[in-house]
Design a protein around this nucleic acid. Structure first.
Lengths: 141, 141
DNA sequence: CTTACAAGCTACAGTCGGTAGAGGTTCAAG
DNA sequence: CTTGAACCTCTACCGACTGTAGCTTGTAAG
């Protein structure tokens, strides 16, 4: 039987986060000691490791909830798993594209800075005037 | 004199967001009509455009606050502006690196999926077992 | 057996950057 | 004068945690 602290340490999670996952229903309510402290088994460890790994890959908790559901039904087709992972991949690719546009614009801005006073700072100028900006960047970051 | 709606439309901002920027001190408190409605001038338009543009480039509101401060003191050296922009560039680059690792891992995971049942789904397997994962991905997304 | 103290507990507030809604008021056109 | 779109304030909510306050429990040493 593991304490919450041990579980957290083994999965690289904070204790509060473990409790948070329980609160939002990603982890089942564990057994408790007489005094009310949580005690976990190996299945909890596996489940939490799964969650953490999926989080590191950028899946939302909602997606992880779905993946865990699917994982609990081994007979179903893995189509849904594929769909979720593909969706995640697409999201990642969109974000990369967007960030690369930002990198380009920031680099250009910085490259053109004379290093003089704020009055003729190229960076501020670009920020002030969108027309001076080459990138057609959309919304969000 | 512009209404908040007009200001919002011209800068591609939501009305609530304009009020939010005022609340957090990024926009000054504007004049009001007798009835209490906000009325803006061109300087507000410029300032809001600056904010929106910087947001599109991924700057935090805190960084934007600093940039606006610097922008108001044209005699200062633009070193600080440079520093902020460089910091932002670095952040963007870190995020790109990270997302590219994720893309790689997700692609690999998906490429290896047999398309069969959940029981032997490669995607879930990778999520279950970090050792099956090539990428040394850190934390966050 | 007692004491000390790390680690656990609950409950709630805060983070970031907005967004949404309720319920009421004002402005401008017809 | 009436209509109705746009405005107002206030409050709560999103995701995914993180931090704090104030208290209780578990365990190891003396």
């Amino acid at each position: 039987m593991l304490t919450i602290g041990t579980l957290a340490k083994r999965t690289g999670t904070k204790v509060q986060t473990v409790r948070y996952y329980e609160q939002v229903g990603l982890l089942p309510e564990p057994d408790r000691t007489e005094g009310g402290q949580r005690r976990y088994g190996d299945s909890d460890l596996d489940r939490l490791a799964f969650i953490r790994h999926a989080r590191q890959l950028g899946f939302t908790l909602e997606a992880i909830r779905e993946l865990l559901d699917l994982s609990d039904n081994p007979n179903r087709s893995c189509e849904d798993v594929d769909r979720i992972a593909h969706h995640q991949l697409k999201e990642v690719e969109v974000r990369i594209t967007r960030l690369e546009a930002l990198r380009k614009e920031l680099t250009r801005m910085l490259g053109e800075c004379s290093g003089d006073t704020v009055a003729d700072c190229r960076v501020l100028e670009v920020l002030r005037d969108h027309a001076a900006c080459l990138t057609d960047h959309g919304q969000g970051a």
